[in-house]
């Protein structure tokens, strides 16, 4: 990756020598992996629905599988966006829908019951991963999450108690810059 990044640098611009700590956490990486998995699964479902229905004894349900595939792609795209939790939660709902569909396929006359059971186990596993990833993202990025107080460097001045920004007070600040001459090209047009 650094090689590629360095190859696109202009002559003279700093090049990466060694990569350091980054902003992506384990939860972010897990959400991204789930997002790509979701898109991959969705594409398979949309392009080869007959293979899926044949494996699960759901012949005649190709349209339904295609729709589920579209849902998977949409959820995956959301999981890769800046709001990954939305994608993960839509996946969790989708997992429940998938499970309900598979439960219906567990009917006694279905010769592919074993495959259906296997698929159900996979859906349960993936659902657990979706929930885990969503919780991990909330723990990492939720606004309300408690954070260790950030370190203020010793050489930095103490945080100001006064947040007004006006050292001489608010009353004195009001209109204090009325002496400023607004440039001609910034004057109002009406």
């Amino acid at each position: 990756m650094s090689l590629l990044a360095n190859a696109t640098r202009r002559k003279g611009d700093p090049r990466i020598l060694r990569s350091g700590p980054g902003s992506l956490g384990a939860a972010d990486r897990l959400a991204r992996a789930i997002g790509w998995f979701s898109i991959g699964l969705g594409v398979v479902q949309m392009l080869a629905p007959r293979r899926v229905t044949r494996a699960l004894g759901l012949r005649g349900q190709e349209g339904l599988v295609r729709a589920y595939g579209a849902r998977e792609v949409a959820s995956g795209m959301l999981a890769l966006s800046v709001d990954p939790s939305v994608g993960l939660r839509s996946r969790i709902i989708g997992d429940a829908v998938d499970a309900a569909t598979l439960m219906a396929a567990l009917r006694p006359g279905n010769p592919k019951r074993d495959n259906v059971l296997l698929a159900l186990a996979m859906v349960a596993g993936v659902a657990a991963l979706d929930i885990l990833a969503d919780r991990a993202l909330q723990a990492r990025h939720g606004r309300e999450q408690a954070r260790a107080p950030r370190r203020t460097l010793p050489q930095a001045p103490p945080r100001a108690g006064d947040r007004s920004g006006f050292p001489q007070g608010l009353a004195q600040a009001r209109g204090a810059a009325r002496d400023f001459v607004v440039p001609h090209d910034f004057r109002r047009s009406f």
Binding site: S23, T152, A160, Q168
Partner: peptide, 30 residues
């Protein structure tokens, strides 16, 4: 002394903490 823009600073950290501060700033935490 009409204005002191430092009023807006809430966090002062070293450069190595920068990547994590992007998250904290974006998430509006702390």
């Amino acid at each position: 002394g009409q204005i002191d823009p430092s009023f807006v600073i809430t966090h002062t950290v070293g450069l190595e903490e920068g990547p994590e501060m992007y998250n904290i700033f974006r998430n509006k935490q702390d």
